[in-house]
Amino acid sequence: MKDLQNFKYTLLGFISLMATSVFGMHKIEPCGHTHNKFSPLEIKCDLCGCTTTSGSFGFGTLSNANFVGLRYINQTFESKNGIYSNSPVSKETINTYQLWAQIPVKKVFMLSVNLPYQDLNREFQGKSQQLNGLGDASIVGWYKHVFYKKKTENKDKTIDYNTTKVATGHSLQFGLGAKLPTGTFEQELSNNVNPGFQVGTGSLDAMLSLGYNYGSNKFGINTLATYYFKGENKNNYQFGNQLSLSTKAFTVFKTSKMNIMPFLGFSHDTFKEITQYNETLKDTNGTLTTGTIGSEFVVKQFIFGANYALPLSQDLFGGNVTSKSRFSVYVNLAL
C-alpha cells in the first residue's frame, strides 16, 4: 500500500512535469474526432465499485475504483478523395491500442491516464498506406461529488453514533484534463479530405468535463458532457473545438462467477471548423450521433468489456467523410 501511494505521487509528479514542459508549446488541444474518447462507462463502472462480486453498485467504495488495463479500439471511415461527387473513395481503418489506468488520488479525486499507440491503414484504388506510431497521451483529473442520504434525526433526539453515510446513488463529477502532443502530426497528411488520419495532432489540448451518474443494485445511467479546447500545433494548424455529449444506461446480471452488465447508449459530437494561420478552412466541421451497444463482464479482479457503435446520423467535413463503425474491447485489472 505504501508503495502504491508513493507510486501515485510519483505518477502525479511526472504528469505535472510533463504538463508544465509542454505548456511552453502552443495551446492545449484534444484530438480530432478520430482519437480515443473517454468512455464514461469505464469511469462510472469503477466508481460504482463493480469490481467486487459481492457488489453493491452505488458509488460506495471509491477506494476500489482504480484499474490498469489494455484497450483496443477499431474505427473505420470512408473519405472521398477528390472534389467531385463521384470522386473515388478511400477506406480508412484506425486501430488504437491503449494502456490506460484510473488512479484514485484522494477520496474524491481521481486521475485518468491514457497512453495510446496508433496503427492506421488507408486503402485507395488498390493501394494501401500504413501509418503507425505513438499517439497523443492524455490525463484528466476528476473531482467527484457523491450525494448521500440526509440523516434523519431520531425522534427522541438521541445521538446517532452510526456515522456510516449512505449513498443515494447519484453523483456528479468534474473533470479537467489535457491531451499531450506525444504523437507526430504530419502537415502533408492534413491535406487529405480526412485530416484526422494522423497519429497525433501535434497540439496541446485542454478539456472540461461534467458528468452526472446514477447507480443502484440493478440499474445505472451515466451522462457526460465534455468540451475540448484544441490548441494550435507548430504548423499553425488547429483542429476545431469539440463538444461531446453521451449517455448510457445499463443493467446488472449476477452469476456465481461473474457480473454481466449490458448497456445501451447514445453519443453526440459537434466539431468546429479547423483553422490554419488563424483562417477557417471550409467544410472542416461536423456533427456525429452514434448509438452504442455493449457489455462488461467482471470476473474476480478482472473487468472485460466490449462495445459496438454505429453512426445514426452524421455530417462530417461537408459530407466528404463518413464514419462507418466503431468497436472496442478491453481488459482491466482492478488495482
Binding site: G13, A19, V105, G141, L176, D205, N278
Partner: peptide
C-alpha cells in the same frame, strides 16, 4: 494534495491560455 492542487491549477491555466487568442 498540494501536488494535486498544483496540477489542477496548471491545467486550468492551460485551458485559459488556450481560450485566449494566440496571435504572434
Amino acid at each position: 494534495m498540494k501536488q494535486l492542487k498544483y496540477t489542477l491549477v496548471l491545467l486550468l491555466c492551460a485551458i485559459i491560455s488556450s481560450c485566449s487568442s494566440d496571435n504572434d
